[in-house]
Nucleic acid binder design. Structure first.
Length: 511
RNA sequence: GGGCCGUUAGCUCAGCUGGUAGAGCAGCAGACUCUUAAUCUGCGGGUCGGAGGUUCGAUCCCUCCACGGCUCACCA
């Protein structure tokens, strides 16, 4: 790592010695064992392949057919119970663990003595026959064992495992080795993502890759990461959404299109937010937000069944039922139901501001009250009174135009849009709308966003001229939706923190 | 960014009103041919996160810093 330029230090044998001394006793023991193996011409790091005929779960599943048959397995030594002239190893592979029984009769005296010098953590190959011990444990009786990789570090404690959250996230490989639940969560993550792709691919969506680097970060309200292109001598942003590019694809004639990948938002980090996170956005021509609602509930239920076997899951002790149809409620009705405030009768912005003062909504508002519209205040009331109450999957429909700059207005009510968000366990899971395709209105909306920016909202949408130009070419009526994939995975894997569903969450480097 | 909490052996954790540190697992040596958190005997292993301060003396009290966890704010 960083043994860099200290002019007072001279690279020498003394340095090597000091580094040696920095190693723990256990590290030295393992390095000595490695050196002895290498000196004897048995370098475990020179091993190239191992033929795995079976995995642990398969042997247990097919025991009756495999009993007394030879198998070849490989994996990491998780425990070593040496009882003298025989020993037991717990071998862990991709699927779990299988016990290996070894003695001098099976391996020969020399090989048996050799294997006894191996360590917990080493990766080994085993050939032998399948049998069941007197205690009933399905095992492999070893005939031949090869040390395939030497572990120079001891593993965490075998019973308590690796608990320290910092170590679990920084050294996820150890977390995966030690905590089977972690492997299970990430296998489910893959199953969920595959299910989403399957669901959309079967419905003739095409998957595309839109740019991560661009000169404008738009399509969402968020602060972007900034980077620099040396070749172009240009400041670039990492994308905060894929929306504006996917709509260009719809303009171009891709009637059903999606992009599932990383977005980057330069915001706070907590149990629900990682700076890079996986989002799917999908767009369907000749559809509206009601079609998106059906797509959302059906696709999520499909993914839940594929990953967990059921559309009902338990999340943090609460059963969540993703079976369609999900509850539908307008934002106005939700605020009335949970906050007792009726916005239907509010005539203008000033009347809404009066309500905001009365109900103490200042904390929820992004700007000064005098700059707030009725829509801003309705949304604030929703966030304060209703959002956290929406535990079962719920579509909240009809968002104020002021906070929905890319959304088509509701017929007959220009203050509201054809937009919904799906809430689960009080958290936003999906955001969808009938896409605004009028380029003239779209330009006005961006102008309004520019004014918001001047009022202090540094997350207001940036104007993208080429996107407007694409709308001028003509985008059919289109429904679009974004789903926070990590959040969906959290619900379906009962994960408390987003860091438990991202293999390598963003961390500060530790010195 | 604010508040609270944490950082002690490779890992999981103790450590009393301040007197220079313990256990279990892991390791090393030995015993044991059906164990599975194997068991039994013996032994070694520490920059107590870092830097200052108070004190005769600091793992312990104070200050600052680093990293992490929770939480509030912001956001998805």
């Amino acid at each position: 790592m960083s043994h860099e330029t200290d002019p007072n230090r001279v690279e020498s044998e003394a340095d090597d010695a000091s580094r040696e001394r920095a190693l723990s006793e256990q590290q030295l023991v393992r390095r000595d064992k490695l050196a002895r193996l290498q000196a004897a011409g048995n370098d475990p790091f020179a091993q190239l392949t191992w033929k795995q005929t079976h995995h642990s779960a398969g042997i247990k599943r097919d025991f009756e057919a495999l009993e007394n048959q030879d198998v070849s397995v490989a994996g990491r030594v998780m425990s070593f119970r040496d009882i003298g002239k025989a020993a037991f190893i717990d071998l862990q592979d991709r699927d779990g663990r299988i016990q290996v029984y070894l003695n001098a009769e099976g391996l020969g005296d020399d090989a048996y003595a050799e294997v006894k010098t191996w360590d917990v953590g080493d990766i080994v190959g085993v050939e032998g026959y399948v049998f069941r011990t007197r205690r009933g444990e399905i095992s492999v009786h070893a005939k031949r064992m090869v040390l395939l990789t030497k572990a120079l570090e001891p593993l965490p404690e075998k019973f308590h495992g690796l608990k320290d959250p910092e170590l679990r996230y920084r050294r996820r490989y150890l977390d995966l080795v030690m905590n089977p639940q972690v492997m299970d969560t990430f296998r489910k993550r893959t199953a969920i993502i595959k299910a989403i792709r399957q669901y959309l691919d079967e419905r003739e969506y095409i998957e595309v890759d839109t740019p991560i680097l661009s000169t404008i970060a738009s399509g969402a309200a968020a602060r972007p990461f900034v980077t620099t292109s040396n070749a172009l001598n240009l400041q670039l942003y990492l994308r905060i959404a894929t929306e504006l590019y996917l709509k260009r694809c719809v303009v171009g004639g891709m009637e059903r299109v999606y992009d599932m990948g990383k977005n980057f938002r330069n915001e706070g980090i907590d149990i629900r937010h990682n700076p890079e996170f996986t989002m799917i956005e999908l767009y369907q021509a000749y559809a509206d937000y009601k079609d998106m609602m059906e797509l959302c509930e059906n696709m999520v239920a499909f993914a839940a069944e594929k990953a967990t076997g059921s559309a009902k899951v338990v999340y943090q002790g609460t059963e969540l039922d993703f079976s369609p149809p999900w509850r539908r409620v307008t934002m106005t009705d939700a605020v009335k139901e949970y906050g007792g405030i009726d916005f239907a009768g509010v005539k203008d912005d000033e009347a809404a501001r009066e309500l905001a003062r009365k109900h103490g909504l200042d904390a929820e508002l992004k700007k000064k009250l005098k700059d707030c519209t009725k829509g801003d205040i309705l949304n604030a009331a929703f966030e304060k009174f209703a959002e956290s109450k929406l535990i079962q999957p719920t579509f909240v429909m009809d968002y104020p135009t002021d906070i929905s700059p890319l959304t088509k207005q509701k017929p007959g009510d220009p203050t509201m849009t054809e937009r919904f968000e799906a809430f689960v366990f009080g958290r936003e899971l999906a955001n969808a709308y009938s896409e605004l395709n009028d380029p003239i209105v779209q330009r006005e909306r961006f102008s309004q966003q520019a004014r918001e920016r001047e009022l202090g909202d540094d997350e207001a949408y940036m104007l993208d001229e080429d996107f407007i130009a694409s709308l001028e070419v003509g985008m059919p009526p289109t429904g679009g939706m974004g789903i926070g994939v990590d959040r969906l995975i959290m619900f379906l894997t009962d994960s408390y923190s987003i860091r438990d569903v991202i293999l390598f969450p963003t961390m500060k480097p530790n010195s």
